[in-house]
Design a protein around this nucleic acid. Structure first.
Lengths: 327, 327
DNA sequence: AACGTGTGTGTTAGCGCAAACATGGCACAC
DNA sequence: GTGTGCCATGTTTGCGCTAACACACACGTT
């Protein structure tokens, strides 16, 4: 920086002003400084800048389940949007959801140079691990319906489950079975509750819930049970992967989809249009989530504004795995 | 830090030593300092530490295609392994693979506080964008077979394609069709070359290559063409998603898999065990890649050692989509 | 003429930490 | 007793940058 200043024959402060794009520098001076920077190959040192300003222009994303389609979409959407806002993104991947592993990652986080955190994890994990974020650190939680001290942003999953269930009822099914996600998942709970309430509101009987762990395997074994029950005409799986397992089970059991049984998923993973048959599902807007998340974080970091929780609408995607029940 | 020093009645330097885990501190002093840190809630300031040491303990991962299964696995494997080595990971997501977008991301990178970079992109993109990394910045490329100035790490994809092709030949197929990935993909090229060479080595005829873009849709349309050709008895798709599309096409064309036609994938995505039928494919070890990548980077950052390129072995996963040709 | 007001630029100080060097105490050999 | 070396700990300094202030000068206003 000193070299640049000397070469352009200005003070260090003027170089600093140019490098930060401040306006109160005469055009000719600015050009001289910029030329000097290029000649020397000057790059501002982020560490020094951060030390002085107290800001790192960096946000952390803590993701518990990088294997799931949703969290990946979230992470990339946040990374893209953060780049637009001039922030970088530090990815803190959890080895597992064991309380100790969560606690360890949070300890590491405290030493990270971040101005804010996006939490991509089930909120109860935080409590189980007995950890908390460093006080005063802005954060948002990407998870719906939790009582969190931080702003919460999520897809409107309840709306998704409602739309899905209603779609099946509208097709003429007497009721809809639900293959829920694991009990400790908040998302699973919300989807299940919305499913139940939609049935109740329509006066349809509420059958017992089946439960899987998001994996195709768990969908497969639940699917075998469902296939064996002649009363079942429609199934809503809590995610696409489990729906895939159900499709496989139905085929093996000789039950036609959607002729004998309608199957719906949830998430709209890119593959779902190519399942057998192409899956009717619920599409979530991850890029909008990412944008909402980053703007909430930046608002709090830069202007101290707290955002109120927000739910991003979802959309029904009707393909070929659902149809009217056989008369 | 000053408060901690006062509370523990030691010098700043001793606090610094304790906080970095240096050994030359007496046990009793260390305990006093640690207690004081806890009481005050002291957290070392990364920016100051980085400013002083010239190291950020942070590596960047530049990923071009966060949507593909492989890159996601790579990113999380690297993040996990980096955490173990005491590094954090900054994710630089590319908006697109347009040269301008790539160039923009690289400009941003230059201002990032990173000690090293892992490049998760096709090498030719760098050249097209006309960008280069800041000189002297350690980097590794996760991409095989490129002539790169940086160490290259990858799964042994040639081995995978060889194993897959040989598996089909061993089952008794006269030859094997190949649905390759896009032409601009190095991975696609390697897989295709290995497939061709395996056929040639076995004295099998080399049929024309079909080409897709990694998507299930492209697999589907290629699958329809393949299904119409009665000579085809075995197909190797360059990834699982395209294989999924082929499976769908075969089913719609009334061709049994593996009875009429054997289909193989490549990647072993978690869903592939639940495709219809469960897919025979090639499994890649992403965690080993992540570990190799981080250790290569750390070796260069901390000790200036250049690692030689390394290929991580892959494994054949035989499920139910392949079998002997109908006699 | 005296006084604000604004604009472009320079000077000073210090952000929090760790390297380099300094110190002082103790164990041991001679 | 004196020297030697080693260890735990303290003091000083500066990493690269920017906020705060200082200043000089060109204006317009009273």
């Amino acid at each position: 920086m000193l070299d640049v200043a000397r070469l352009a024959d200005v003070s260090l402060q003027t170089v600093s002003r140019v490098s930060r794009g401040r306006t109160n520098v005469e055009a000719s001076t600015r050009d001289r400084v910029l030329a000097a920077m290029r000649e020397i190959g000057y790059r501002p040192n982020r560490a020094a800048r951060a030390l002085k300003s107290g800001r790192f222009r960096n946000i952390a994303v803590i993701a518990s389940v990088m294997s799931s389609y949703g969290s990946i979409q979230w992470v990339s959407a946040i990374a893209l949007e953060a780049a637009r806002a001039g922030y970088s993104v530090t990815l803190v991947a959890l080895e597992s959801t064991e309380p100790q592993a969560v606690a360890r990652s949070f300890d590491a986080l405290a030493e990270h140079a971040v101005d804010g955190v996006a939490l991509l994890l089930e909120h109860h994990m935080l409590e189980e691990a007995g950890v908390s974020l460093p006080p005063g650190l802005p954060a948002v939680v990407l998870d719906s319906g939790v009582a969190s001290p931080y702003p919460v942003i999520d897809n409107d999953q309840a709306m998704g489950a409602r739309l899905a269930t209603q779609h099946l009822l509208d097709l003429g099914h007497r009721t809809v079975r639900h293959l829920a996600g694991p009990e400790d998942s908040r998302a699973a709970e919300i989807r299940e509750t919305a499913w139940r309430e939609t049935l109740e509101a329509a006066g349809a009987p509420v059958p017992p819930t089946d439960r899987g762990d998001w994996s195709p395997e768990s969908g497969y074994s639940a699917g075998l049970r469902l296939a064996a029950d002649p009363d079942v005409t429609a199934v809503l799986a809590a995610n696409d992967q489990m729906a895939l397992g159900i499709l496989r089970a139905m085929r093996e059991a000789g039950r036609d989809v959607p002729g004998d049984i309608s199957v719906m998923g949830f998430d709209d993973v890119p593959e779902s249009a190519n399942y057998q048959p192409p899956l009717t599902t619920v599409h979530q807007s991850f890029d909008r989530i990412g944008a909402a998340c980053v703007s909430a974080l930046v608002a709090e970091i830069e202007r101290g504004e707290r955002t109120s929780p927000s739910l991003v609408p979802v959309e029904l995607v009707i393909r070929s795995s659902t149809g009217p029940p056989r008369a």
